[in-house]
């Protein structure tokens, strides 16, 4: 019985202690404590690398630690909901990519109108073939697919993911049927092309640049509205030069990596974070980073980023719906089709 009394006393003291500590938090301007960034994909990926790079630079500017942690799963929904359920005070930030545009249709987290975006940059999309492949131009590839429908194999990082949609958009714009082979990420998709299991790959330029430079792979076309100069290879034209009808789809759907915060975070917090974000992007270290990643800077936040995101969400959601992958229809979510 003595025992129980003692236990009770201990716990009471402990609880009192917490209360005192809870009140001790002072009110200084943002940021006055560590910022937690949850990256919604696993370690080592593109999103992870970008977010960790930016965080390391922003840390100095903001004067607090930015602690990066990965919380992958549920198509990014795990990270998304973690941030959404935390206090909307700017101390919990989501490290995200364009995959967040599928939050609504996948029914894992709130749609784009409920978020603030900090879009740092991304790598443009490309379709590449093996150096020994008979296809010299994109027209060769399309011609082959026209002759043998469902026989020309294009690998991508997974059904319903960005690069898969880009390849499907290409096929439907020119009216041919490719065979889209899904892999578990872009790495395995490129490996499959290197071992010639497939005929072509749809992925980002940053992911193939080293293979192009060494002459193992040959880029055919950019799945973008702008072309790109490849080192050791030359200029690669955008697909819209060959097939102008792709313009609408491609200009509103591309890779981006950066941060997300709930939309109702106080304005001055968003502004403080945004300024540090901009400074980090202008840092010469970022230029170097962007170069090794073979990406381009976008550097949008605030109203502009929101506008872009809502357009992109519309394209992504309707595409996902057409593929039969959407759990919630875009109409249900109130996402109107673009045009």
């Amino acid at each position: 019985m003595k025992l129980r009394k003692k236990t009770l006393m201990t716990f009471l003291t402990v609880i009192l202690l917490i209360c005192v500590m809870g009140m001790a938090v002072a009110a200084k301007p943002y940021p006055n404590k560590n910022i937690f960034v949850y990256i919604f994909s696993s370690q080592g990926g593109g999103t992870d690398t970008w977010v960790r790079h930016l965080s390391a630079l922003m840390e100095r500017d903001l004067g607090v630690n930015i602690v990066c942690n990965n919380l992958p799963g549920a198509n990014g929904g795990n990270g998304g909901m973690k941030v959404w359920n935390a206090p909307h005070d700017g101390y919990t930030v989501l490290g995200a990519s364009e995959t967040s545009m599928f939050f609504g249709v996948n029914d894992v987290a709130p749609t784009a109108d409920q978020w603030n975006f900090f879009i740092a940059g991304g790598s443009p999309g490309v379709i590449a073939v093996h150096a020994k492949s008979p296809y010299q131009t994109i027209e060769d590839l399309v011609e082959a697919a026209r002759k043998h429908p469902n026989q020309i194999k294009i690998s991508d990082s997974g059904r319903g993911k960005l690069w898969n949609i880009k390849a499907i958009q290409l096929g439907s714009a020119v009216g041919v049927k490719f065979q889209h082979i899904p892999y578990n990420g872009s790495g395995p998709a490129i490996t499959a092309l290197l071992s010639r299991e497939v005929d072509a790959v749809s992925c980002s330029a940053g992911e193939v640049i080293e293979y192009v430079r060494s002459g193992m792979l040959r880029p055919l076309v950019m799945t973008e509205v702008n072309g790109l100069d490849f080192e050791n290879f030359g200029y690669v034209k955008p697909a819209t030069d060959y097939y102008p009808s792709l313009k609408n789809g491609y200009s509103n759907l591309f890779q981006w990596l950066g941060f997300m915060m709930p939309a109702d975070v106080p304005e001055e917090v968003v502004a403080a974070f945004g300024r540090a974000f901009e400074k980090a992007l202008q840092d010469p270290k970022t230029d170097q980073f962007v170069k090794t990643q073979s990406s381009k800077k976008i550097g949008l936040w605030g109203a502009e980023a929101k506008k872009l995101a809502s357009k992109m969400e519309s394209v992504a959601s309707w595409m996902s719906y057409e593929l039969g992958l959407a759990k919630k229809t875009p109409t249900e979510l109130g996402i109107a089709p673009l045009e």
């Binding site: 080592g44 992870d48 690398t49 790495g187 490996t191 430079r213 090794t292 990643q293």
Partner: peptide, 26 residues
């Protein structure tokens, strides 16, 4: 090749890229 053989190696790839080294055939 720039292709990680295991999950920790994938993380190592990310680390190399943060230091401006892009593993690949060259």
């Amino acid at each position: 090749l720039g292709i990680p053989g295991s999950p920790p190696a994938a993380m190592l790839l990310g680390a190399l890229m943060l230091h401006g080294i892009r593993p690949g055939p060259l």
